[in-house]
């Protein structure tokens, strides 16, 4: 069986976790991988917990179930910890990336004894500094690429630049902020 990288995203409706999972799928696709990016649709409303998933592989992926034993978990909103079992099934040779101003040691006690890698990134602060608003998904995307070693960081940055140039063709003024958010996040993620 070939190795498939499986990632689960936890966020709240409106924070862009689904979009981030699709951007990650895009970036991996552009490096020649087979990808899946899909959300688990619940009662869709702003603020409700949502889950999204990624599978990334060198060979075609046929499994179409949700992911129950992810290699990595991304928590876009730290207030979900406690009400959502974010480490459920998470592999101990993988890791979790949490959007928080706290250090990995400070959040560890809330993770039910999870023994794998715990990483934190202050995505809110980075987003507010670079974009003027709290859009945590862009920095979280960069953090998971770094933590899970999804692809070469330089290649990722280059790919995202092209992707944003296309996505924000009508508002190029936001491209620089988004790129800065990605770069800062890759440098500032703690617990590697």
């Amino acid at each position: 069986m070939s190795k498939v990288l499986e990632i689960r995203w936890h966020g709240r409706g409106g924070q862009g976790a689904k979009t981030a999972s699709l951007l990650l799928a895009d970036a991996a696709f552009n490096t020649g991988k087979y990808i899946q990016g899909f959300p688990e649709y619940g009662p869709e409303r702003m603020g409700a917990p949502i889950t999204a998933y990624n599978r990334i592989s060198d060979t075609p992926i046929t499994v179409h179930s949700n992911i129950y034993e992810p290699d990595y978990v991304v928590v876009v909103d730290e207030t979900l910890i406690g009400s959502v079992d974010v480490t459920a099934g998470l592999k101990e040779d993988g890791g979790i990336v949490i959007n928080t101003s706290k250090s990995p040691a400070e959040v560890a006690p809330k993770l039910k004894g999870y023994a794998g890698k715990i990483c934190t990134i202050d995505a809110k602060e980075i987003s507010e500094a670079c974009l003027g608003k709290n859009f945590p998904n862009t920095p979280m995307l960069a953090a998971i690429v770094k933590v899970a070693n999804v692809m070469d960081p330089g290649e990722f940055i280059k790919d995202m630049e092209d992707s944003f140039a296309h996505k924000f063709a009508s508002k190029p003024q936001v491209i620089e902020g988004n790129m800065n958010a990605l770069k800062r996040s890759m440098e500032e993620v703690k617990g590697l």
Partner: peptide
């Protein structure tokens, strides 16, 4: 084809 599973999942 399957709603959401196929309709909304991005794949190669």
């Amino acid at each position: 084809f399957d709603g959401f599973i196929t309709s909304h999942a991005v794949e190669n």
